[in-house]
Design a protein around this nucleic acid. Structure first.
Lengths: 117, 117
DNA sequence: CACGTATATGCTTTTATAGGTATATAATGT
DNA sequence: ACATTATATACCTATAAAAGCATATACGTG
């Protein structure tokens, strides 16, 4: 499990991260809220911990897990160039739609055979 | 392969998306630039296409693939609550570091056994 | 010290997916 | 019609990882 992307590919792990974003939780709380077997929770928490997504603090027999920002920031950073891409394309779409406002000569269908979408 | 997260978990697919962000490419161009066997490229492109990350346009024997924004925007949307989380925590860290500027009484090590990080 | 509670780990089985190689399909030019 | 180029797909194998269950470890309390 090398990359942060593989870590967040697992739905249960995303659910756990989603829980922890509001506040820290014990393993048992996560177990109850997500209705997930305890070993499953512990195993996913281990993966998340070793990848730096969460850290734990001992509180008697409990372990309180809380979020750490770095790995998700890494995902955020990876998205940066694509954000630029799609803002450009929203602009292009808007310009296109603007042109649609004009008198509207009816166009022929120019789609070619084998082209999708 | 249900979720967008599983799709981008694969490094070759992320590489392909990274290539396409600048401009559309044919399968052969992707193959050469990423030094990836052609069937590998085609298979990953199929996955990406079926998940809506890319679309293709026929150009003679070639197929030109280009990016579509929606699935990555979905990832971006998933990150939103975490962004709020880490901006809060950067603030907290800053306040903490500010306090460190003060006269600095030497503290004892309070870490408990079994606590990580 | 025995017991209950909380969490972690070990083992086994199942499943999904990526890679490799060969081959199929499609379009083009001669 | 045939050869060439470009891309897609089929089949097989290897591998990794998730789930389930049992069990181990750790702490706290009577």
């Amino acid at each position: 499990m090398e990359s942060v992307f593989e870590i967040i590919a697992e739905p249960n792990r995303r659910a756990i991260l989603g829980l922890l974003v509001s506040s820290q939780q014990s393993v048992g709380e996560i177990e109850r809220r997500l209705r997930m077997p305890q070993p499953t929770v512990s195993k996913h928490l281990r993966v998340l911990r070793e990848a730096g997504f969460v850290e734990s603090q001992v509180d008697a027999q409990r372990r309180l897990y809380r979020l750490r920002p770095e790995p998700l920031q890494e995902v955020d950073a990876w998205l940066a160039p694509f954000r630029r891409f799609w803002s450009v394309h929203v602009d292009a779409l808007e310009r296109h739609l603007d042109r649609m406002e004009e008198p509207t000569p009816i166009k022929k269908n120019k789609r070619r055979k084998g082209e999708d979408r």
